[in-house]
Design a protein around this nucleic acid. Sequence first.
RNA 1: GGGCCGUUAGCUCAGCUGGUAGAGCAGGGGACUCUUAAUCCCAAGGUCGUAGGUUCGAUCCCUACACGGCCCA
Length: 469
Amino acid sequence: MSYEALPHRFAGRTPIAAARDAHETLEAGAGSGTTYRLAGRVLGRRGQGKAVFCDLEDRTARIQLLGSADELADEAFAALKGVSLGDIVGVEGELIRSRRGELTLRLTGYQLLTPCRLPLPDTFHGLKDVEARYRQRHLDLMVTPESRERFAVRSRIISSLRRFLDDRSFLEVETPVLQPLYGGAAARPFVTHHNALGRDLYLRIAVELYLKRLIVGGMERVYEIGKNFRNEGVSFKHNPEFTMLETYEAYADYHDVMAMTEQMVAQAALDALGTTVVVVRGESVDLAPPWRRLSLGEAIGAACGVNPLEGARDEAGLRAVLAADGVDTSRDRTWAALVDHMLSHYVEPHLNEPTFLVDYPVELSPLSRAMPADPTLTERFEAFCGGMEIANGYSELNDPDEQHARFEEQAAFGRAGDDEAHPIDEDYVHALGYGMPPTGGLGVGIDRVAMLLTGASSIREVVLFPAMR
RNA sequence: GGGCCGUUAGCUCAGCUGGUAGAGCAGGGGACUCUUAAUCCCAAGGUCGUAGGUUCGAUCCCUACACGGCCCA
């Protein structure tokens, strides 16, 4: 088969679902009198000699085709008899319902548009090999309807988030992926090199510090949806590149941001699924506001008996609590790292319902504003659902001197062996010197939200081409 | 990083106590005018993840490694 002889286009086609929907009430054995042109991939074939039945599938639906020697030209019928599973074809004919009750296009025209030259996976059992589904996503999408739907949900989530923010006068912006200095999160970066500039650059681990410069500049409400890169292990909830939404709103604090977060995620669920109720790890969970709010210290205290945020910073004491439960703390170099470890060990896995943990220690939150009543804590929250962190936000620290001091403290953590400590960003501190209004900021892990709304138990199910070894 | 499990035809899977492999679907050829996991006939398809070891003989037992899954850290 010469590709040059194959059509370059197929005009006037109707989505299969639209053709089906228009004739749902057609009776068995009856014709609709309506002619359609359909195109898609052949995923089933049942030969009958002088009659051929196929199943044609496009993005919207599947429908049966019936081609008979009586109604097709000899050449077209011969071509149809030679069809292979997986071939992409264009057809034309009257929509009827077969005697057995199946909506069917009775063909008067048939054209091969593109052949499938390789054998398809078993069209009955589908592609079961998880590794093959990730490495050859095109095959997975072809034969796994659930997979196609999962990525359609993901797409609807992202458009819902954009609509939500656009409706509230947020401006979508784009900031550098290649950065001279990384920041905005506790993570190890990827390093690359710019030949012409003769210097190393980092792939961003967050967009936070750039978006806040825009707030200093007076943009007031900004957001960015894009890839972040973190040079860390992969797990069911970690991919080295992942999609994050960050928003910054001038004149708002973390309470405002929490309210927006729960509304925005609930709206995304409504837009993507038609409901705010999702099934998470076997339990039905409602994402409708308001979400539960718990203080971080009390949540840890309730789970293990020790509230690490009460009294003095007792590094040895926390280490002993974790060690008593068999947790290896050898890589936790600071008191803050131990608190973070307690959170992820005792609390996070059990937060199935949407929950805001609030009031994080200052050592763990170098970019958040301190609480007036207790400067050891900050106006910060993280949102959890399904045992995962899905969002993080705070009242933004806008005091340049305090920010500089926090960076210095981070540098000390770095010298103590914390390889996720923030580097000092003098340029950012300088920008704060021009005055950043009181601001509330937010980061949302889009992949995690997509997992939540699709019931996926691995991030690889919601990332089209996940990182594989 | 640790533990457990898996890797056999393009796909889904069998393969006993160690004797160099089978099925269904797909792909090739043929029959069939209402089938829908269509059916029937014929032929073809394999470095049993990789490398060692034990053995007369290894898909099978042992070791290491690779890749993947699940659980723990």
